[in-house]
Design a protein around this nucleic acid. Structure first.
Length: 350
DNA sequence: TATCCGTGGAC
DNA sequence: TGTCCAAGGAT
């Protein structure tokens, strides 16, 4: 008589008990859950962002702001600057807004239910479920790209995304063990990260291979089915490095749109048909420094960088920043690249 | 539902 | 070099 088949969930949890990654924001399987503040912070940082990219930011944030009250008391500008380089900057503004909401409306403690968490700024369906399950042991199912991929393969769900999400959600709910929802979510992520990868999944090492319809099909990588991507348009713009007495002019971008709320070099609207069209912030003897190429999510940018040095400081809106301390200005990567180019050019001129 | 929103690493 | 895509959310 054949032995009863171990349910997929138990197989996965047993694998996780033996193979869980050690991460700074995570407790080992079976241990008491981590500080909800740290779970929340890590989940926000990890949205569409790799573990390797998050690590140093997580370390700096937790050292500088060790709890929710400290973060709520911080200025939005310093949080934005500390976030510089990590991308998706609306997350940083929402981070501050969420810290203030928890401090103001919830007595400095995160609400424990998925429903209440979902109402906080920057916390969507996935993050609410992840925090509820991981930090509070609630029976919530966090469906991220890893879970979508693993579940789509387990059941060979051929409906292209995003249409297939509803079926994936149902299946993921059915697999979630109410008593270990947090470990289940993290197990799915570890499996998706190390074994059930987007390309060339390593089925030979997968604890769920015998249960997986996609593995049985012989070509598991076709799941989940995704629509074709659109081509990225290329845009062109101009940025201006204006310095005087060892300081450079920086501006604050408007809170909405690209790089919203971040410090930046003065620039045009990136809609130039060709280089040399943009109006400079002041009259000066502008020199061309070169062009920065930068790829965003839905377009590529060719940014022409110009520099000028003034003998007298003009009356102009902005912030004069010590050039030697430009690294602490919190420039997003695009402008950090432009600044580096302008400084190289300056060295050549000197 | 579709679009906007960054960045860097892997292949 | 180009392509894909990573613990998504807001609108």
């Amino acid at each position: 008589m054949p032995a009863p088949r171990t349910p997929v969930t138990d197989t996965l949890l047993a694998w996780y008990d033996a193979n869980a990654r050690t991460l700074p924001w995570r407790s080992p399987p079976g241990a008491p859950p981590p500080d909800p503040y740290r779970v929340w912070l890590s989940e926000i940082m990890l949205q569409q962002t790799t573990v390797a990219a998050v690590r140093p930011y997580y370390a700096r944030f937790t050292a500088r702001w060790p709890d929710i009250a400290a973060l709520a008391a911080a200025g939005e500008a310093e949080i934005m600057a500390a976030w510089a380089g990590l991308g998706y900057y609306a997350r940083a503004r929402n981070l501050h807004a969420c810290a203030q909401a928890v401090t103001r409306d919830h007595g400095r403690r995160f609400p424990e239910s998925e429903e209440e968490l979902r109402r906080l700024p920057g916390i969507g369906a996935y993050t609410a479920a992840a925090i509820a399950a991981i930090a509070f042991g609630e029976p919530a199912t966090a469906v991220d790209a890893n879970v979508e991929r693993v579940v789509a393969r387990l059941f060979a769900i051929a409906t292209p995304l995003p249409g297939g999400k509803s079926e994936i959600r149902v299946r993921a709910d059915e697999l979630t063990p109410p008593g270990r929802a947090g470990d289940f979510a993290q197990a799915m992520m570890d499996l998706g990260s190390a074994i059930c990868t987007p390309r060339d999944p390593d089925c030979g090492r997968c604890p769920l291979e015998d249960d997986c319809a996609a593995a049985a099909s012989g070509d598991p990588a076709v799941f989940p089915v995704k629509p074709a991507r659109k081509a990225k348009p290329v845009r062109r713009g101009a940025a201006f490095w204006l310095d005087h007495a060892g300081e450079v002019l920086l501006v604050r971008r408007p809170p909405w749109g690209m790089l919203g709320g971040m410090r930046a070099l003065p620039c045009d609207d990136w809609c130039a048909a060709r280089s040399g069209e943009a109006a400079a912030p002041v009259e000066a003897d502008w020199a061309a420094c070169g062009t920065v190429s930068h790829v965003f999510t839905h377009f590529a940018l060719e940014l022409d960088v110009h520099s000028a040095r003034l003998l007298t400081r003009p009356a102009i809106d902005g912030e004069w920043w010590k050039i030697e301390e430009i690294g602490e200005a919190g420039l997003p990567t695009l402008f950090a690249k432009a600044a580096a180019l302008a400084r190289v050019r300056q060295e050549e001129m000197a």
